[in-house]
Design a protein around this nucleic acid. Structure first.
Lengths: 229, 229
DNA sequence: TGAACATTTCGATCATGATCGAAGCGTTAC
DNA sequence: GTAACGCTTCGATCATGATCGAAATGTTCA
């Protein structure tokens, strides 16, 4: 009985190094980063990072893009991001009493992007607000926008019509590893995050995946969405 | 900026050993197995398997249950199973041309259980049939039973009312790693698999997660479900 | 063409952890 | 009690792979 276990072990081995895990974690925001930047994140020298990146790219967990003398790396597919999401969810739960709970930076816990949508306290608050206002039904099973939800997002200028050949899903629950709560993912979640970036409600911090909520953003999330944040 | 990367790496390290990956893969059917059985699966001596099992249980990926002199191990939570699902999906895709595609046993590919629901060709065929008959809508986003689907399963004797305190989801898509197609998971998927076992449409093989489709099962899946199998 | 810079390749070193034999522990049955 | 059995712990060995210095490659720009 051949199983997929050897491939599973090999894949896990690629994530099992702290440097590579840091690189993958850093790339979870969906953006591309240079090899040098990722070396810093991983806390290793450029030549070591290069070795790690080569292994990840060889296994097609990462895609590489050359721009001049630099090489930009990004997650190869959303499937990889989704896998990492699932692993982080389990990684965040460690019931060993001896173990201190993972120390997550306050900024990271407050607001970050998870591949392409909002996560952290902000992501959960926006999701909760949309549920309270009957814009959204969401549980572990899946999610759907209500008529009022579609109207709400439409009023904000979000076009929810999928590109013709995109099979991307509209609503999907994503288990937030820092909050241990569901937040909204899928095309709708990505559209909200994009809007927030465009309108300068949130700004990406140069380092890492966390985002800063601007003063205007605080007002917008509270008044427009009714988020308790 | 503290991230969850160290915990992620540690978690991945637990899965990164072929023996442990085999053990976890074997336990993906949700049942409990003895340490000796798992040593066989992992292809190591009992004392080595014991060491692996202790590490997995310590990190709460497995739960252990003593029955007399034996110890039965099972996956600790459905969250662990879901994480492994996601990893197997990625593990099954390895675009390196040098690499032969993972050799999955014919029995495994034909029919198996994935934690608690049907997978493999059988799982996909049943799911496809339910979609063709308008019993089910399913995409990556989520899924729902139609009125006719509820009636159909009700006629088969499946009670879909959730236990009061269960927050288990009704329909969920699960990406089949051997077929690269969606199949039905969640409470509905589990109910169908249970029914099939009860009515002797499928039988668990003593070794491994694959199941045998009985002659009666072939008739039932074709005539009752309309599955092309 | 040559200089500056980002990145990779090579080679040697070093640490981690997987393995199994032997022995110990715990439970059950007689 | 004691024998049988399943499983775990201990100890020593061995293999894999992470690391960095040094050097090479490749790209851009002048």
């Amino acid at each position: 009985m051949q199983t997929i276990a050897p491939e599973l072990a090999e894949l896990a081995g690629l994530i099992a190094d702290p440097g590579r895990a840091g690189i993958l974690s850093r790339l979870m925001d969906g953006r591309a980063q240079t090899a040098s930047e990722l070396a810093l994140v991983a806390g290793v020298t450029p030549q070591t990072a290069s070795w790690h990146l080569a292994r990840l790219a060889e296994r097609a967990l990462l895609k590489v893009e050359r721009r001049g003398p630099r090489r930009f790396y990004r997650l190869a597919t959303p499937l990889v991001a989704q896998m990492l999401e699932g692993m982080m969810t389990v990684a965040a739960i460690d019931p060993r009493p001896s173990r201190p709970p993972p120390r997550i930076g306050a900024e990271m816990r407050r607001a970050r992007t998870c591949y392409d949508h909002l996560a952290g306290e902000l992501g959960v608050a926006v999701t909760d607000a949309m549920r309270r206002h009957d814009h959204l039904n969401l549980d572990q099973e899946g999610g759907e926008l209500t008529a009022s939800g579609r109207a709400f997002l439409g009023d904000l200028g979000i076009d929810l019509h999928a590109p013709a050949r995109s099979r991307r899903v509209l609503c999907r629950p994503c288990l937030d590893w820092s909050e241990q709560r569901l937040h909204l993912a899928g095309r709708a979640g990505a559209a909200i995050a994009n809007l927030a970036l465009q309108r300068d409600w949130i700004r990406r911090r140069p380092q890492g995946r966390s985002v800063e909520i601007t003063a205007a953003g605080l007002v917008a999330f509270r008044d427009l969405f009714g988020a308790r944040i």
